[in-house]
C-alpha cells in the first residue's frame, strides 16, 4: 500500500486524465451512434428531429443532474420518477383549483421538495440506507399520485403552465435553452458554493467531513430536497409536453437517470464525478434509445437494451476502478 503510494506519487495525477479520457470516449460514442442512426434513417439529422430528441430527453437531463448531486454524496434517489408524477399532480390540481399558473408551479415544486425532505431526513439525519428510504418513497409518491389523480389523467389548457414544456421557437423547443440554464446554475452551485464542495466531501468521506465541521448530515438533507425540487420542475415540463397531468408520468425515470449518471463517470461510491459527464451520459443514452425508436427497432427490446447498457457500464467501471486501486 505504502510502496504503491510512493511509486505513483511521481506520475501526474491519473484521475484527471482518466476523467478526460472518459469524456473523449463518450463524445466519440455519441458521434458514432449519431452517424450510425443517421445512415439508417435520413430523418435522424433533421433539425426537427434533433429538437424532438432533445425535448424528449430534457426531463432526463434535469433529473440526471439532480441524481448526480445525490450520487456524489454516495447516495441514490429512486423516488424521482414517482415524484415527477406526484409533484405534477399537485401542480395540476393547484392550477385547476386556483386558475393561477404561478400557484401551480409553486405547488409542483414544493410537492417535489417535500418528498425530497422526507428522503433527506431519513437518509441524512437518521442515517438510514438511501436505497431503502427512496425505494419506500418511490412507492409512496406513486401511490400518492394515483390517489390525487384518482388514477386518471387531468387535461391542462393553461398556456402559461404549458409554455415551458410545450412551446417551440421555430425548431427549438423552449425547454432546451432552459436545460442549459439549469446546467449553468447547477454548475455554479456544485463548483463555486460551499454547499457544492460539501456535497463532494460528504460522499468522499462522511466521517472526515463531520470531523472537519462540515455538517454532512445537513448537506444530505439539502441534496435530497434539491433532487425533489428538480423533480417538481421536471413535472412541470412533463405536463407541458403532453398538455395533461398523468398519474403514470416519470415511469422508469430513476432507472434512466441512474444509468446516464453512471455512464457519465460518476462513482457509485460518492465523491467522484462531474455534471458535464452526466450531460454526455444523457446525450449518449438518449441518442441510443431515440435512435432505436426511429430505426423501428422492436419497442419490446428497449428495456432489454437499457439493462444491457447499465450492466456493461457497471462492469467496465469496476474493471477500470480495480486497475486504479492498487
Amino acid at each position: 500500500m505504502e510502496t504503491a503510494g510512493k511509486t505513483t506519487e511521481q506520475s501526474p495525477s491519473p484521475a484527471i486524465s482518466a476523467l478526460a479520457m472518459r469524456y473523449l470516449v463518450l463524445a466519440a460514442l455519441i458521434v458514432i451512434a449519431s452517424l450510425g442512426f443517421g445512415f439508417a434513417n435520413e430523418n435522424f439529422f433533421s433539425l426537427a428531429n434533433i429538437g424532438i430528441l432533445l425535448r424528449s430527453i430534457s426531463v432526463l437531463f434535469i433529473v440526471s443532474m439532480a441524481m448526480t448531486f445525490v450520487m456524489l454524496t454516495g447516495g441514490i434517489d429512486l423516488s424521482v420518477g414517482s415524484n415527477v408524477a406526484f409533484a405534477g399532480g399537485v401542480g395540476v390540481i393547484a392550477l385547476t383549483a386556483t386558475g393561477s399558473a404561478p400557484v401551480g408551479f409553486l405547488a409542483a415544486i414544493l410537492a417535489g421538495m417535500s418528498i425530497g425532505l422526507i428522503n433527506g431526513i431519513f437518509v441524512g439525519r437518521m442515517k438510514l440506507s438511501a436505497f431503502m428510504v427512496t425505494l419506500a418513497t418511490f412507492a409512496l409518491a406513486r401511490g400518492l399520485a394515483l390517489v390525487i389523480y384518482d388514477a386518471d389523467s387531468i387535461n391542462v389548457s393553461n398556456a402559461i403552465f404549458l409554455w415551458l414544456g410545450g412551446t417551440s421557437w421555430g425548431n427549438v423547443p423552449v425547454v432546451i435553452p432552459f436545460v442549459v440554464l439549469v446546467f449553468a446554475v447547477l454548475s455554479v452551485v456544485l463548483y463555486r458554493t460551499t454547499f457544492g464542495r460539501d456535497v463532494y466531501a460528504a460522499g468522499a468521506n462522511f466521517k472526515t467531513a463531520f470531523v472537519l465541521g462540515r455538517r454532512p448530515e445537513r448537506t444530505l438533507v439539502w441534496v435530497y430536497i434539491l433532487s425533489g425540487a428538480l423533480a417538481g420542475l421536471s413535472a412541470i415540463i412533463t405536463v407541458g409536453r403532453v398538455s395533461s397531468g398523468q398519474p403514470w408520468a416519470g415511469l422508469y425515470l430513476e432507472f434512466d437517470a441512474i444509468t446516464a449518471v453512471i455512464l457519465g463517470g460518476t462513482s457509485l461510491f460518492g465523491g467522484r464525478g462531474r455534471l458535464f459527464g452526466t450531460i454526455l451520459g444523457v446525450l449518449l443514452y438518449g441518442i441510443i434509445i431515440n435512435g432505436l425508436v426511429l430505426t423501428g427497432t422492436n419497442p419490446y427490446l428497449q428495456s432489454l437494451i437499457k439493462g444491457a447498457i447499465l450492466l456493461s457500464v457497471v462492469l467496465l467501471d469496476s474493471w477500470t476502478q480495480r486497475g486504479k486501486q492498487r
Binding site: S13, Y200, N205, K207, T208, A209, V211, F269, G271, R272
Partner: peptide
C-alpha cells in the same frame, strides 16, 4: 478512515 477524503484532490 477519518482524516482524508480519499477520492478528492
Amino acid at each position: 478512515t477519518n482524516g482524508i477524503l480519499a477520492p478528492l484532490s
